[in-house]
Amino acid sequence: MKKINVEVNGKKITKEISDHTVLSSFLRDILNLTGTHIGCDTSQCGACVVHVDGKSIKSCTAFAADIDGSKITTIEGLTKNGKMHPMQEAFKKHHGLQCGFCTPGMVMSAIDLLKNNKNPNDREIRDWLEGNICRCTGYQNIVAAVKEAASKM
């Protein structure tokens, strides 16, 4: 067992975890933050993307013990005072989601893109989202949503 101190969505948390607990399981099973999804569990689909110290990573492929001392933001942490993040709003406006399963990872990844590139073009958005698989939308409305969010952020 390991004790870790982390900040999750702005809250300081101390927890005892098994050495082999992965971050996605820590979030879902221990903190009940089930908005982070497991689509493949081997870092290919991107449904589990969260931010660790401001960078997007795949939470299924990081040990929770390795995240000790970090700040984590999950999809649940984007909404501030009941108001959705501009990226969330843009996904809604442009119908950038259907079944919603890949959506949390997609949104977290897209927000990280805008941190790296404030005004991406279509190609840059599509390239960045290489690590996020969506089976429903054909990606077109996701691209539109990311562009809209870029104009609002």
Partner: peptide
């Protein structure tokens, strides 16, 4: 705009 979106977008979907 979709009525279901807010729960999916805020991590409140229940799969």
């Amino acid at each position: 705009e979709r009525k279901e979106d807010k729960r999916f977008l805020t991590g409140k979907g229940r799969y």
